[in-house]
């Protein structure tokens, strides 16, 4: 390995593939750090259930059985356990995307490694894409865990014809959420207490998304606002596919809405991120933001 030729050889390897490899290395590194805390592993396995169980207990207290006439009137299905278990399965993934990815910069800063990462030839966005990749893997495994657990423990049944379209919906959701997350990254970069904004936005989007209840329970004005969130459409379509299969209601409408929202949010997010990153560098505040 001659000295300078090695460096020159590395320089030639620019492009999408090298960025993807870097993003994957970042994702693997986050896994390694996470798995070095034994309690994190336990939490990862337990999380979907400790969130779901109180919901199921609450639902059971109100319904007194596995069927709900009121829910059937509102949604077309009386099986409230499946409705809640499938809808809330997306919750862990959403939280992973919002918190894990938006805080990618902050986490590196707290660890002291942000500047070092920024001196490597990866593109600035690759750090976020790497964190995103990790969180898709992490959150995605959580979704699978909750769905399988729900089938085994709570008798939830899934329509197998709906699995592939549901996965496609998740992909569309991740794209739209990434636009929102990029905006959140800007907030984290600019505001000292950015976590407050993330917390409010994450809680707000989760509240508006019909995870454990249909949008119909909201007043009309809030129903209208909720349609601006990609999460709202994703949760509904994801659940409809897994309950009703390909015959689910308004699937085309959901896909179209998601495509439009994804484009808008991703564009806004990318422009904001580019401008913010430049602003932070001009302030020389990478270590102190």
């Amino acid at each position: 390995m001659t000295q300078s030729s090695f460096n020159q050889e590395l320089q030639k390897r620019e492009g999408f593939r090298s960025e993807l490899c870097a993003a994957q290395a970042i994702a693997v590194r986050i896994w390694r750090v996470e798995l070095s805390y034994p309690l994190s592993v336990l939490w990862f396995i337990a999380m979907p259930f400790v969130w779901l169980i109180p919901m199921l207990l609450t639902g059971n207290a109100v319904s007194g059985g596995p069927e709900s006439v009121n829910l059937e009137t509102l949604t077309g299905t009386s099986d409230w356990v499946s409705y809640v278990a499938i809808g809330t399965a997306v919750l862990g993934l959403t939280m992973s995307l919002m918190w894990g990815t938006a805080n990618a910069f902050r986490r590196e800063q707290n660890a002291g490694t942000l500047e070092t990462l920024m001196t490597t030839p990866i593109k600035k966005g690759t750090l976020i894409w790497g964190a995103l990749l990790h969180n898709i893997q992490h959150g995605g495994l959580g979704v699978v865990l909750q769905l399988v657990g729900s089938m085994l423990l709570f008798g939830v049944s899934l329509n197998i014809w709906g699995i592939l379209p549901a996965l496609a919906i998740i992909a569309l959701m991740v794209i739209g959420m990434q636009g929102i997350v990029l905006t959140l990254v800007c907030v984290v970069l600019l505001a000292k207490q950015g976590w407050m904004v993330i917390e409010f936005l994450a809680s707000g989007l989760t509240l508006l998304a019909p995870m454990a209840y249909p949008l119909a329970v909201f007043p009309p004005i809030i129903q209208y606002i909720a349609t601006a969130s990609p999460l709202t459409w994703s949760v509904d379509a994801f659940r409809n596919f897994l309950i009703f299969g390909l015959a689910g209601p308004a699937a085309n409408q959901a896909v179209a809405a998601l495509l439009i929202l994804d484009t808008i949010y991703l564009l806004i997010g990318m422009v904001l991120f580019k401008r913010t990153e430049k602003y932070v560098r001009s302030k020389g505040a990478l270590t102190q933001f």
């Binding site: 609450t58 109100v62 829910l71 209840y213 119909a216 329970v217």
Partner: peptide, 15 residues
């Protein structure tokens, strides 16, 4: 915002 989903779910299931 954290407990509102519980209440909303109760309303959806129980009317």
């Amino acid at each position: 915002m954290w407990f509102a989903p519980y209440v909303l779910m109760m309303v959806a299931i129980g009317g």
